[in-house]
């Protein structure tokens, strides 16, 4: 097996007395679509922020393509090929959709090429029709798409998607799933945080489960759906006990 694209080793982040991410270790290989799930407050977004350099880890090692990236500034990590979308959407609200995406393209291109690239990406994610609309005037699902387009324009090797399917209709979710798959086929690797379990199970070949900052499971969707600790974290200890006395049904 080739060396992992991303190696996370014993990464911990404390905020004062709170341990938001606790001794987390996992690998991501090129070409994977990995789901990161867990109850609210489990530390999923914090982990994304540690990976992309928004905060430095309190301890532990993060390596991207074998080189240490933990504690680097976000723009340096973006240059190395890892970026993310924002859970609560952080677009440049006064700028047009196109200009938002162009700004991402400037990471690796001069302005004219960045413009061409941005137009191609808008085409691909189906936003060409609203290229000139001010980002602040968009609906929430549209904004989430622009987030994806802007991140894609930085030409990431590893893209972290933070709840881009929130508030989407089932049909729109299908579109996003198809889009992520086709991007993966073109060489982008994904880690996806998503609350919609059906979408996660369908999109991801492997799941990581966080609970109270700890990684409690790492496996295929089928393995995860049978994992006692995961069931307990999601549905409570009582439910897990009851479940244990009955035959398992997968989601």
């Amino acid at each position: 097996m080739t060396a992992p694209l991303l190696e996370v080793r014993g990464v911990t982040r404390r905020f004062g007395g709170l341990i938001a991410v606790n001794d987390v270790t996992f690998d991501v290989h090129a070409g994977e679509i990995v789901g990161l799930i867990g109850p609210n407050g489990a530390g999923k977004t914090t982990l994304f922020n540690l990976l992309t350099g928004v905060y430095p880890p309190s301890s532990g090692d993060i390596r991207l393509e074998g080189e240490a990236s933990g504690g680097l500034k976000p723009h340096k990590i973006a240059r190395r090929g890892m970026t993310k979308t924002f859970q609560n959407v952080a677009l440049f609200m006064e700028s047009s959709v196109l200009d938002n995406v162009v700004t991402g393209g400037l990471l690796n291109n001069a302005l004219p090429e960045a413009r061409d690239k941005a137009r191609q990406i808008l085409d691909r994610v189906g936003l060409s029709a609203i290229a000139d609309v001010r980002a602040g005037d968009l609906s929430f699902p549209e904004r989430a798409r622009v987030e994806v387009a802007r991140a894609l324009c930085t030409e990431p090797k590893l893209l972290l998607l933070d709840e881009v399917m929130a508030a989407l209709t089932p049909a729109e979710m299908e579109e996003v799933i198809d889009l992520v798959r086709s991007l993966r086929d073109d060489g982008t690797t994904f880690i996806v945080v998503e609350h919609h379990m059906k979408a996660v199970m369908k999109l991801c070949e492997r799941l990581l489960v966080l609970n109270f900052g700890e990684l409690i499971a790492d496996g295929t969707p089928t393995e995860i759906s049978r994992n006692d600790r995961v069931i307990e974290a999601y549905l409570g200890a009582n439910f897990a006990k009851k479940q244990a006395s009955q035959p398992v049904e997968t989601a």
Partner: peptide, 13 residues
Amino acid sequence: ENEQAAEVIGVDT
């Protein structure tokens, strides 16, 4: 418009 987002998508702010 959003300094943190600018950094994350590669702007050396």
